[in-house]
Amino acid sequence: MAGTPRRMRPLRNIYAKIAAIPMVLTALVVFVGGTLWTVTYSFTNSKLLPKLNFVGLDQYERLWSNSLWLTSIQNLMIFGILSAVLTITMGFLLAVLMDQKIRFEDTFRTIMLYPFALSFVVTGLVWQWLLNPDLGIQEFVRGLGFATFEFDPLSNPDTVLYGLLIAGLWQGTGFVMCIMLAGLRGIDEDIWKAVRVDGIPRWKTYIFVVIPMMRPVFITTLVLVASGIIRLYDLVVAQTSGGPGNASQVPAMYVYRYMFTAQNLGQGFAASTMMLLSVLIVLIPWAYLEFGGKKNG
């Protein structure tokens, strides 16, 4: 090719490349590098300090024979399934109610969403107080004359998860409601006209027309809710500190304990790798559904 030489490729967009350095470092060093580092060290017997002394799957064997971990996993499963099902169902139902051309929509939305602006610590502490057996809701109802009324989930290992669930729903449902409402508003207005012309009852329209159309919204919501649940930490620390006993322990607390207080890094790494694995189980099918078919998602 004759004429002036091509400008050298790496020098094109040079400012854009410089400006992207923080992003590149974050993506490669922290997200990819950090993850690989932790996964690698989960195969070592690191105690107080990380050491590359490989012991195979020892940490994982110990992890899965540790009753604290098993409790944590079980708790997370129960809490997670209930929480996901309930937030999404309630969030959708509330969104449907909000979509009935009601008055004061903004007020209702503001009320339902404000807990989401609060810290989990605040949520946990408020509900700890509301569920206080001596001075909270239980005592209030007893004071109304129901002397045998029992509502003390936080003191009982069998029910403590439901106490957490009440608080979690209080904080998270408004958020799901907002996403669902956005999804409902995203549905073509002509659909509503069409079903009215066809004389299809409203509840049927929601079940057979609207919900199938909102499938992507449901999936995205599920992914968001699920990835939040797996991280569940602050709420439990604040509301129950993992108690009574270890009845409300969750994996994130297990990781923290072994990494930063029990000085058994390898155990912490193995536990956090298991957390990663559980996220991937949620994430990969979703990414496949979301981006699999088309090229540019």
Partner: peptide, 13 residues
């Protein structure tokens, strides 16, 4: 690939 000339100048790049 190829070139663009404007007013006798190669402005491809």
């Amino acid at each position: 690939d190829g070139q663009i000339w404007i007013k006798g100048q190669n402005v491809t790049w």
